[in-house]
Structures are given as C-alpha cells and as structure tokens.
Design a protein around this nucleic acid. Structure first.
Length: 273
DNA sequence: ATGATTTCCTGTAGGC
DNA sequence: TGCCTACAGGAAATCA
C-alpha cells in the first residue's frame, strides 16, 4: 500500500516526466470516486503543471491556473503515465490527457480507497484532511516527536499511524521502523524515553530514505509511474515476514492485530517492557 | 476529549 | 477443479 516512500517516488517521476507539460483535459472520472470537489470539474481548463507537492501520503498537483489536483492512492492505487493507445480497464477511475494527448495520466485503484479531487484557488485551505496533517518525518525534530509521544497513552504503533500526529507512515514503515528501533508496537506512547524518541526520529528517516532509493515497496498493488516495480520488499525485516527468522537474532517474527492492522515484530528484539 | 471500532471496496489466498 | 469465505488496509465516521 502506498505510503510516504511510494508517493514520493511517484512525485519524483511526475517531476521528471510531466511538470512543465500541459494537462489538457480530464477524459474520464468515475463519479463515486471523486468524493470532493465534483462541482469543480466543469471549471477545469488546460493548464501547465507547475509543481507537485507531497504532504504525507497526499499528492497535490499545482497548476499554473491556480487550480490543484489532489490525489490519494489509498491502498491499491497506482498513478500511471501511459500512451493513450494502450487499453484502459475499468479500474482506471481517472484519466487526464497530457499535451497533445499522446500520453495520459491514469489513476488505477481496484479497491477504491483512494480519491481524486479538483480544488479551485483558495479552496485547499479548507480541506481538513490536508491542513490537519502532522509533520513530515523528514522535517521531524526529536524534541517535537518526544512531545507528541509523551502526550499520548495509545500504543505507539496506533499513534504513528495517525496522520494528524506524523504524516506519511503506514503499516509497512511503522512495523519496519519500530523493529529497527527495537520498540514493541504495543508499548504505550508515553513510555517512550527521550533517548528512544531521538533514536526513532533518526532511524525512521533512514528507513524512509532507503525505501525511496529503492523506489518503494511493491508487495501487492503499488507500481511506479511507468508501471515497473519498486524493490524495497526485498529489504523488509518484519512486514509480511511472520514465521521467518529475525535478521538480527533468528527468533521467529510474530504477527498480531493492533488497531485493526496486521502487526509484525520480533518478540526478542522488541521486548514489551 | 480521547481512543477504539466500524465502514467503504474488490482481488487474492486458503479451505474444503 | 471450483466454489466459498475470510482477509488485506487508509482514513472518515461513529461509538464508548
């Protein structure tokens, strides 16, 4: 499922391939996939894509006209740049024509947990899930992070999944970062020491950076803008590794359910104190 | 107010 | 082999 590294990989690919080009028209939108801003669709006009912003797992395509296309990939979403001659299937909920129409940006999302929205100038500031996002992990200061965990008695994993606390982490990178940090996912957030908080900030940045360099994790649905696979699934230490030997201590990786999510950890490396 | 639970959706994996 | 059910999960809504 696309998390920060996957969304960032798509953002970088959009920069290399589409920024500076004109988004000509919205060819197709599945009505119940829009969720926000549907009344704006008629207002769409051709405009140059000026810049692509990522906040957490959200992508925001800023157009020279002042309009903004907001995209969330949900859990099975892909953003693909494909020739308009290649066949689109019924999972392509949004299609946008680029320049002369030889290429299209297509959002494909079988499970439809993602969304697409068109915002007119000034409307972005009222989009709650965008403006309430917590800090990006790459801009997270250890002191700020300690303040966040110190004020919550939720299990640390549940807090890390909360986009209002920290933006961009999902199930894969929470499990991976907690294992590398030797913190049990059930530990209450306010039991995290200042030293652990400092270490976590350092380690989560490193994991996310490595994942971006590997082009993200392609376990199931995620693909690059050109349809190719990411490679970070080969570097996972706990996620989807239940029953396998921990890379650090050979103990079997366990899987439990926490906050409704499959949660993977090493019971030896990550003691529940 | 806070945290836990439910809901949306469909392809896939597993059981019989 | 084929059918059926359970499961996967991001974020909003709802519940306790």
């Amino acid at each position: 499922m696309p998390e920060l590294p996957e969304v960032e990989t798509v953002r970088l690919a959009l920069y290399r391939n589409v920024v500076g080009k004109t988004l000509t028209c919205i060819l197709h939108i599945r009505r119940d996939y829009i969720r926000f801003g549907e009344r704006n669709l008629r207002a769409f006009q051709p405009a140059i894509l000026e810049r692509v912003e990522r906040k957490g797992k959200f992508l925001c395509l800023h157009l020279a006209s002042g309009m903004a296309l907001m995209i969330h990939l949900g859990m099975s979403g892909r953003l693909l740049l494909e020739p308009s001659t290649s066949p689109a299937d019924h999972h392509n909920h949004v299609r946008i024509s680029v320049d002369d129409g030889t290429w299209e940006i297509r959002q494909r999302d079988p499970r439809r947990f993602g969304f697409f929205a068109l915002f007119l100038p000034g409307e972005l500031e009222r989009f709650t899930s965008w403006i309430t996002l917590g800090p990006d992990p790459f801009e997270l200061q250890p002191k700020r992070f300690y303040a966040i965990v110190h004020s919550s008695r939720r299990p640390i994993k549940s807090l890390l999944l909360d986009q209002k606390k920290v933006a961009g982490l999902g199930n894969i990178y929470v499990d991976e970062s907690l294992h590398r940090c030797k913190i049990h996912p059930l530990r209450l957030a306010d039991s995290i020491t200042p030293m652990e908080a400092q270490r976590y900030v350092r380690i989560v940045k490193r994991v996310l950076k490595e994942a971006i360099e590997q082009g993200g994790t392609s376990t199931n649905d995620y693909r690059h803008l050109d349809g190719t696979f990411g490679a970070f699934q080969h570097w996972l230490r706990v996620y989807h590794q239940e029953g396998k030997a921990c890379k650090t201590c050979k103990t079997k990786i366990e899987k439990i359910v926490l906050a409704g999510r499959g949660t993977h950890f090493c019971p030896n490396c990550q003691p529940l104190m």
